[in-house]
């Protein structure tokens, strides 16, 4: 399948969003609100849930279902307070040695005046540093759109997984088309060139697992998480952060 078709599927109306996974994969989700500084960003949901008897912190970028909900959730594009809420949830998970599961589905971090005024760059940067040193396991799953900085802000993880028709890219294909090709019509070319499909990302060593979108995807994820998390939880903190560091350290590592 062409990369462009994958991107279209990742964005398709009716595709399950983060909350569907949260309720489909986990049990007894209890949502936690607010970043304790500014407000509560509805584009990012987080809370505590259970998975096979294990307490888990779940964080998801939520696009919303109905038009009204999409608007109230800003189409899944989080503001700085959303990323700060996620950071609070992650630090809390670290305190209680709960694993963290992030569900990523965003066209990108929000680009607006308020987002800049409240430090979108600073918020994402803080998440990256904290996640790279987090003394509890983190698995991030790309369930739809993995849009650039807004996606990696929740994906500095021990493992990154992706659904078959999700994508993960440095810039939106539209952005690349208009900047590199100077032609907004070259979106298909941009999709191919960016190598953003699940298969591309697996080949490039960016994602550890690709999940087929057939049958019961929720059950497949539940089983995979149930298998992976206990192993990571058993690792000493130092090994856990070392493994995460090396995962990213090797990307684009040149010969010394």
């Amino acid at each position: 399948m062409q990369a462009y078709e994958k991107v279209s599927l990742a964005r398709a109306a009716g595709r399950p969003t983060a909350l569907a996974y949260i309720h489909g994969v986990f049990d007894d989700f209890f949502e936690l609100h607010g970043d304790r500084f500014f407000g509560d960003d509805p584009a990012l949901v987080c809370g505590i849930a259970e998975l096979n008897g294990l307490s888990v912190t779940v964080i998801g970028l939520e696009k919303g279902g109905s038009t009204q909900e999409k608007i109230s959730r800003n189409f899944g594009s989080a503001n700085p307070e959303g990323y700060r809420k996620a950071l609070r949830a992650m630090k809390q998970a670290e305190k209680f040695h709960r694993p963290v599961v992030c569900l990523v589905d965003t066209a990108g971090a929000y680009c607006g005046i308020g987002a800049e005024e409240r430090g979108q760059g600073s918020a994402i940067a803080a998440n990256l540093v904290a996640m790279m040193g987090l003394k509890t396991p983190v698995i991030s799953i790309m369930i739809g759109e993995g849009g650039s900085g807004g996606a990696i802000a929740l994906a500095a993880a021990n493992e990154v997984w992706i659904l078959e028709n999700a994508y993960y890219a440095v810039i939106s294909p539209e952005g690349a088309a208009s900047i590199i090709w100077k032609d907004a019509g070259k979106v298909k070319e941009a999709c191919e060139a960016l190598q953003l499909t699940a298969a591309d990302l697996a080949r490039l060593g960016i994602v550890e697992r690709v999940f087929a979108e057939k049958g019961d995807v929720f059950a497949a994820l539940r089983e995979a998480l149930g298998q992976a998390l206990p192993g990571y939880l058993a690792l000493p903190a130092e090994k856990l952060t070392e493994q995460r560091y090396e995962k990213f350290r090797k990307v684009g590592r040149s010969e010394l």
Binding site: I152, A156, G252
Partner: peptide, 9 residues
């Protein structure tokens, strides 16, 4: 592409 994005982490 994505290899650049990974440099952030």
């Amino acid at each position: 592409g994505i290899l650049s994005l990974m440099q952030m982490a």
